[in-house]
Every structure is written in C-alpha cells, then in structure tokens.
Simulated assay, not measured.
Amino acid sequence: MIKDNFGKLILAVFLGLGLGLILSSSLFEVRRVEIEGYDDENLQMEKIIGSNIFRLEGIELLKEKIGEDPYVEGIEVSRNLPQRVVINVDYNRPVAALQIDGKYTIFNRYFYIIAEDKDQRRYQVPVLKNISYNFRRDRLVFPEEAELMISKLESLNPDLRHRLEEVDFSKGKIELVLSSGAEILIGSVQKLDEKLRVLNSFAEENPELLSRLEYLDLQAPARPVIKER
C-alpha cells in the first residue's frame, strides 16, 4: 500500500515537472497566427504571439472581437504544434448572387454558398451576369479576373454598393449596373484598384449625381468619362 502511494506520488511529481517544462518552454511559444475566412487589419495579435500554445493568452479577447461582427457565425481555434495557431472563422456576409434556372444562389466574399435555390433575392446584393462558374463542394469557382472583381465589391462606397444591381462580365469587360439603370464601365481588371478609387471618390464627392448618372467610363481611370441623364 505504501509502495503504491509512493509510486503514485513519484508519477505525479514527474507529470507536474513535465507539464511545467511544457508550459515554460520556448519550444511551444506561438510564432505564427493565421486567420482563415476573415480579414480585419485592426485585430490585435500581440498578446497571442509569444504566449504558450497551450495557454494562448488573449485568445478569448480576440474571439470576442471577431464575434462582434454580426455576420460571424462560428469561430474555431486549432493548434498546430509546436508554434502555429489557426483561427477558422465562419463568415457569412453576402456579397453577390447568381441566378441559376430562375433561382438565386447567394455567396460570401470567400465564394462560399450562404443560400441557394431561392425564388427571391433575400439579400440586397448584386446579381452576376454573363459569367462562367463551377461548384466545388459548398463553394463557387469563377475565372480568376472575375474573382478579383468580386472580392473588391465590399470596398465600394456604401451608397454605391446599396445601389448596385448587377455586375456584368460580357465579352471580358466588367460593367456595374445601378438600380437606376446607370452603367459604370470598368473594362478589364488592369489598374482595378485605381479604377475603384476613382469610382469611390466620385460617389463620395458627388452623391446627388449618382441619381442623375447615365454612365461612367473608367476604362482609362486618369480620364474618366461621365454622362448625366
């Protein structure tokens, strides 16, 4: 009996020492944090970087911050020993829709399907026109240039995004169509960031003009062409 208790005591001591070594060893200090499915430049990683991978100081505060976004439906944290942490975010803010056989398929900025086979467009998002696509499980796959344009939709001025009705990819040229029928010709994805900066500046500086706009040609962003109704 005494030997059994002594053996258990020795085992407990060794386990305690081992746990202490693990929790204090620099081998298990977090060096890299990856967030998949979510982008936010304001997220603070400082408390997690350098902390022990089994303790993860600051992880609950980070999850709480991400969870404040109403479109976040779930957060999972996984540890890739010895020094890497991956945070997977289930983010379901709708960004655009496809009309397939008369029904709508809605997806988010990462091209994951949120809803499909809907008779009506439940979300106020633009419909993609004249675009090729494939399904990969619960995700939509588009041509590379189209994916680049779609990924930029959330960067548009809020008022402009609210008015955006269609994104047309006819003949390799991108055209945005507003609910008023106004057309904004983007053309190719060359200088896309510059074109969208000009577009956002136009929408912010001339909000009343959006209602009178007939078309805006941004194919040459340094020399935009504007026509009012």
Score class of each variant (00 low, 15 high):
K3C: 04
D4A: 07
F6L: 15
F14A: 12
L15I: 15
L19M: 12
L19S: 09
L21F: 12
R31I: 01
E34R: 09
E34W: 00
D39F: 11
D39W: 06
S51Y: 04
L61M: 00
G67C: 05
P70L: 13
P70Y: 10
G74K: 11
R84W: 02
V85R: 08
V85G: 03
N88K: 14
Y91I: 10
A97M: 12
A97E: 09
I100G: 02
D101H: 12
T105R: 04
N108S: 05
N108D: 12
E116C: 03
D117A: 14
K118G: 10
K118I: 03
D119W: 11
Q120S: 12
R121L: 15
R122L: 15
Y123N: 04
Q124V: 02
V127Q: 05
K129D: 08
F135C: 08
R139A: 07
L140T: 00
P143D: 03
E144N: 03
L160A: 13
R163H: 04
F169E: 04
F169C: 13
K171G: 07
E175L: 13
V177P: 07
G181L: 08
E183M: 11
I184E: 00
D193S: 12
L196W: 02
S201D: 13
F202W: 03
L213S: 01
L213R: 09
A222P: 06
P224S: 10
R229Y: 11
